[in-house]
Nucleic acid binder design. Structure first.
Lengths: 164, 164
DNA sequence: GCTTGAACCTCTAGTGACTACAGGTATTAC
DNA sequence: GTAATACCTGTAGTCACTAGAGGTTCAAGC
């Protein structure tokens, strides 16, 4: 189940390994060349070695590291959290408690977002269903948006920044 | 149930209405003075009249309009959608079909986000539960992040930008 | 060897929806 | 009169990229 390819550092290519360009790396790991350059710029990926024409050359190790990054981002971890996860993944002998803590904290945030988003969905559904379809002046949707007291939820819904 | 305060335009204060400052307006409608100025800047709120000292003065109508904006934003409507909703609310005689369409489109987006966020939550839970608590090298969380094939979900989770 | 087109390079600016700050002016309470 | 607070404008920063300008390098075909 577990092999030796877990290490995510991109150092030391083996003697005859094939190098790939940034385009192929991007395709293989599901992102764009611009994003790869951006990740290098902010230090999630190490500076890639260059060929004589100043173009970046990558090995398979870079694909693994970038895939890890993309996958972590897909899970909603922030770039800073990904930075910490990479740091941990680069030290396989360390205890994984910190990884666990990070994941649990993120889960808690995801669940909070889910709760707020669910409340928003329910309220949206309710206001759409109650719209009788007349003029704007009689529109229940506009009413609810005008007056918080018409909401079934008690508190505010949580702010747009929280629900996406 | 319905009164004459639905109109959201901030024109024509009645002869003896009390004016309030930007701070009180912000408090009353649940946002910050900076945000009020920002909304004026992007044209969601009309330019407020000023007193002799160049400070903005508002009436109750501004509170209603700003509350509508904040409430719509809390529901996750984009600023551009809020702009359209305000335009509609300002014309109460028009049919409310467009309002309905806007709300339904937004509901569909919210439901899509909910589905992706739920998938992320389930996968996060699974990987946290399967972590035996040893070293990073044996950590199931790191494994799953390294290798998409270990996910129960088939496709990608949808991208961080989508889940918030 | 030459040409063409794709891929690559750097650097800057833009996105959305605010938020924060700097450096100044006005109002209000005592 | 003075001190604290509220307000003003304008600019820059946030997050995680994305897009574009303007140029260079590479790979394939002739």
């Amino acid at each position: 189940m577990k092999d030796q390819t877990t290490e995510l550092s991109t150092t030391e290519p083996s003697t005859t390994e094939r190098y790939i360009g940034i385009g192929e790396l991007a395709r293989e790991s599901g992102c764009k060349p611009e994003t790869v350059r951006y990740y290098e710029h902010i230090g999630l990926l190490p500076s890639a070695p260059r060929n004589e024409g100043n173009q970046r050359r990558y090995t398979r190790a870079a694909i693994r590291r970038l895939t890890f990054i993309r996958h972590s981002r897909d899970f909603g971890f922030s770039v800073e959290a990904v930075r910490e996860l990479l740091e941990m993944a680069d030290h396989p002998a360390m205890p994984c408690q910190e990884v666990d803590t990070l994941a649990k904290r993120h889960l808690a945030e995801v669940e909070a977002r889910l709760a707020r988003l669910t409340a928003v969905r329910d309220e949206l559904k309710r206001m759409i269903n109650q719209c009788a379809g007349g003029s704007v002046g009689q529109c229940h949707i506009i009413d609810v948006l005008s007056d918080h007291r018409l909401c079934h939820q008690s508190g505010p819904h949580g702010g747009a920044e929280i629900i996406g």
